[in-house]
Design a protein around this nucleic acid. Structure first.
Lengths: 356, 356
DNA sequence: GGCGGTCTGTGAAAGGTTTCAAGAGCGTGC
DNA sequence: GCACGCTCTTGAAACCTTTCACAGACCGCC
């Protein structure tokens, strides 16, 4: 990826000074008021007289007071933080979702912490535990396995969870998703219309709901067209990354021409871009020798070597909606769990249609 | 009983919020042990006898006990969290840096929270305040303005800060960066060698250190070549994004051919990709009509419509090194602040060299 | 001058955990 | 039989903030 053995230059400096934290108590003493008054300045400034408030604020500034959020949260029992635990921070799809989340959170005066499971179940579990222990306001998650028991248990213990980019039957969460089966169907129907006979599906691991649903959609399109679903040539990858896409390209280009698929549908754009790049560099022409359809329509899909046909999802809206559901869940006592499903849209570009 | 009469009248207070969660106290009662023992199971399981430990663990499981991290941190005074406050989560450069950070943090048993300032100074300030109040172990930051006083004050109040992708003279932080001036020089020297006369620099806002340093490097290369630095045509953008790159492309393609630059050096790859895309769609040929050099060499640079010449930085290594410095600072009493500078490397591709 | 009412500020309790000195129980050596 | 050492457990203090019932001061007004 990167990181050749670039030799850094280093310059050293002297050690750090020693910290000493001042609390409300010290501020109160310095300002000559009681402890409760300092707290009032912090939390309900309008009940404190301007003069007193000024004294307290001056004391805070001169002591470098920093409110201890742990103590605040412990006593007050509420957190001002939302977390979005995503599958892969390197995938622009998720960072766009995150942007929507931030937007909605900011409007509600909350902050967002982003975490990455990197498609690793242990990591996901560790982050969920951590966030639950932190008593965050709520968790947005694009899960590796949406049926994990850990996930199901969280809401009953007081941490609201909204599942993003997956639907869920459970009555314990809200979920916001895009119809992936339909998306897969759109992609394959398009390829069938173009007359392709041997079509590959590139995606994995099969534990990911997205991968499975999109494949199921692909199969459904075949069935609808009266083709056996066994016709779909599956190339399983270990993750949804550009690197895995290149690997798949290698395998695919290595097939004899009469058995090689004439089109590939990739479970996401990263795979598609990797596949595209590798195939082109191995001498295949896109779309003449191989048509490619991606998924997500990330910003880079359009700027690719061959602009990529892709299935577009309303990413930012997805994030915003999810955050809004979460906020509703934690503030509205009459909250009802919802399952929101958006509809994807096929964006046709050169990678399937050629340059017309 | 006269006891009751002697004591001051006790007024009933409203019970504290959150009656639901089971704490160590409840676990202790359920397991028939003391509160301290439960804590021992949590923090020093080896000192508890296997039998007792089993009882406690069973009680925890059946009560659905979730340790309250606020209380833990309040008492113990230490956090297990590192934060990386980045400029833009949508830029793969930063998510790659983040990957390096995660790697190092995980090795040390810490977790990472990611935050995005989105190149917005207020947002950055708000996150810094929040993180300081949370008493995180330390903050890694790619700052909007590395000279902000808020940033300088953090370490003296006890929160270690490492500046990533910027160097800093201050004696208060470690910093890890790549020599951006040199990077700019490499880019422009390359273009000059190819014989370009009218060269544009695309980047902004000029408050960002990266933008300024890379431009300064560009100027230096011109000076070295005996050219007036005024020759550098500056196209200022509002941010380092693909969209802004497209805007710049629009402006650039609108110039009359005899005044239009024959080469453009972009402050990062997102700008370059946007520029490339827009220029191509407006009919300019790359590199014949316009050569383009990007910066960062993100994964998508190579897969672009015209594979992009770019200045590569050791992204992941950057993140890893920064995290290691931070960990050292917070664990090693003899820590010395360091300024680590890596060296960038020019990767030449079709966008400048054409198809040879 | 006494009475109700507003404004401000006070003080102590409470929140869940960790820490640590001290205690309990028990086997062992002499 | 006694003292000792060992292992395991206990209980209470401490961390820093927020909360809330009340107290004190001051005002206007009957």
């Amino acid at each position: 990826m990167d990181d050749a053995e670039a030799l850094p230059e280093r310059t050293r400096r002297r050690p750090a000074p020693k910290p000493h934290a001042a609390g409300v108590k010290a501020v109160a003493a310095a300002a000559g008021v009681s402890l409760g008054t300092v707290s009032n300045v912090l939390n309900r400034p309008e009940v404190v007289s301007p003069l007193t408030r000024a004294k307290v604020e001056a004391a805070m500034a001169s002591l470098g007071f920093v409110r201890n959020e742990s103590a605040r949260q412990l006593r007050a029992g509420s957190s001002r933080i939302l977390a979005y635990l995503m599958l892969d921070a390197g995938n622009p799809f998720f960072t766009d979702v995150a942007k929507g989340v931030e937007e909605a959170a900011q409007a509600a005066g909350l902050s967002v912490f982003l975490c990455t499971s990197s498609e690793d179940a242990d990591r996901e579990a560790a982050y969920l535990d951590l966030l639950e222990q932190q008593r965050v306001q709520g968790i947005l998650i694009t899960p590796i396995d949406q049926h994990s028991s850990r996930l199901r248990k969280l809401p009953s213990r007081g941490t609201p969870v909204v599942v993003v980019d997956r639907t869920l039957d459970e009555a314990t969460h809200c979920s916001v998703a895009v119809n992936d089966v339909l998306g897969g169907e759109l992609a394959i129907s398009h390829l069938l219309e173009l007359g392709h006979q041997r079509i590959a599906y590139v995606g994995g691991p099969n534990t990911l709901g997205q991968v499975v649903d999109r494949r199921d959609g692909a199969r459904r399109a075949l069935r609808t067209a009266g083709r056996p679903i066994a016709e779909l040539i599956e190339l399983t990858t270990g993750a949804l990354t550009v690197a895995e896409g290149r690997g798949a390209g290698q395998r695919l280009a290595g097939l004899p021409a009469d058995r090689r698929p004439t089109a590939a549908f990739c479970a996401n754009d990263l795979l598609a871009l990797g596949l595209l790049q590798q195939c082109v560099s191995l001498g295949l022409r896109v779309p003449e020798d191989l048509a490619i359809v991606g998924y997500d329509d990330i910003e880079f899909a359009e700027a690719a070597a061959v602009p990529l046909t892709s299935v577009r999802q309303p990413r930012q809206l997805l994030g915003r909606t999810a955050a809004e559901l979460l906020l509703d869940e934690s503030s509205n006592p009459d909250h009802e769990h919802q399952r929101v499903t958006f509809t994807p849209e096929l964006v046709v570009r050169t990678s399937t249609r050629g340059t017309l």
